[in-house]
Design a protein around this nucleic acid. Structure first.
Lengths: 187, 187
DNA sequence: CGAAGGGGGCTAATGCCATTAGCTTTTGGG
DNA sequence: CCCAAAAGCTAATGGCATTAGCCCCCTTCG
């Protein structure tokens, strides 16, 4: 008698992430997850409410993973050094999982399931900028601008949007310098 | 006797764009396009090779439309004024068609069908930066950075990724100023 | 004027996928 | 040991893309 799969929601999400890494977001299908976890498709509904909810869980995972990476990168640093480390860590994560980035939720704060994880990610960014002594709305603008640069670059790079990959490191370094210079001018 | 639909590829793409505007990219389905154009689903294959190809055509449309808008915005201007006009036009387009922006191809240069339209769009940006006298790779970096900012902001804004819409105009203005300052420092 | 042929539309059929309903088996706690 | 809930399964439905094969109108050429 075969041992039961002993599936859990976490394991379903694990399989989903593998699929995304291998085949992109379009490859994330309940049928494929079921095949990979050795279970019939309808059985997945015992662990996940729907494909949409599974996508939501995947989003939470990504947010948590990125938050962890960025926290590690920023720990023990401050000021320009911390910002630089954060921006490099962001790009590094996306380069490591290019397909995965397309599944990153862009509006986690408007989703019940993802709100907590999304808030934490934003907080890491805000905390990293804390040392610049930005007041009120300036801190918000600075955080948004950081997101714009970091996400804009990652989004284009991960989808192969830059013609040739040549000199991309330089392009990114210059963006970092641009942002830091701007930040310095405000504090 | 009912008049034939007299469908053309262009009309199919028109209907596709309407659907995207109304229901987002996920709403773009051959069945829905068929219903809207008053035709049976398989008939669409006389004008379009597949759903994937239709998406490609939609992408071309978007690229062409944006190129037109940006060209208009930049005409008769130069330097900072031109860059500013371009960036405002970019954001204005995306605000006008938020759902549509999710269908914008991010790597048009790697697609046979979209390559020409994508090249033209990039060329408008390059031409707008021409007055700064950037040399060789610096022109490429500057163009990439412009894309990063403009796409990063548009992408996040159009998907509701900024918590509150409050002060978004300021955030964008500051990004424009950041970019122009950086550009000035290089020329 | 008339006939051929191709463009453009249609129906039927296939296969994949998500989702639901209802049944069965396992398993862990009492 | 027992039994109820948890976790699987099969069968069925409905949406969608895609393919095959048919038919009719319109244009063009003889």
């Amino acid at each position: 008698m075969v041992v039961r799969a002993r599936l859990t929601t976490a394991k379903v999400v694990d399989a989903a992430l593998e699929l995304v890494d291998e085949q992109g977001v379009e490859g994330l299908t309940l049928a494929a997850v079921a095949a990979r976890t050795g279970v019939a498709t309808p059985s997945l509904y015992k662990h996940v409410a729907s494909l949409a909810e599974l996508r939501g869980h995947v989003g939470v995972r990504l947010l948590e993973e990125m938050t962890g990476r960025f926290t590690d990168a920023v720990l023990g640093r401050s000021g320009d050094e911390a910002v630089e480390a954060l921006m490099h860590a962001y790009r590094a994560y996306v380069r490591q999982h290019p397909k995965r980035y397309a599944a990153m939720p862009m509006d986690p704060l408007h989703d019940e399931l993802q709100q907590a994880a999304g808030t934490k990610l934003i907080e890491v960014m805000l905390a990293t900028l804390r040392g610049y002594g930005l007041e009120g709305s300036q801190a918000i603008h600075a955080t948004r601008q950081l997101r714009v640069i970091v996400h804009g670059f990652a989004s284009i790079e991960s989808s192969g949007g830059f013609g040739l990959p040549e000199g991309l490191d330089d392009t990114y370094d210059q963006l970092i310098r641009m942002y830091l210079t701007d930040l310095r001018g405000q504090s």
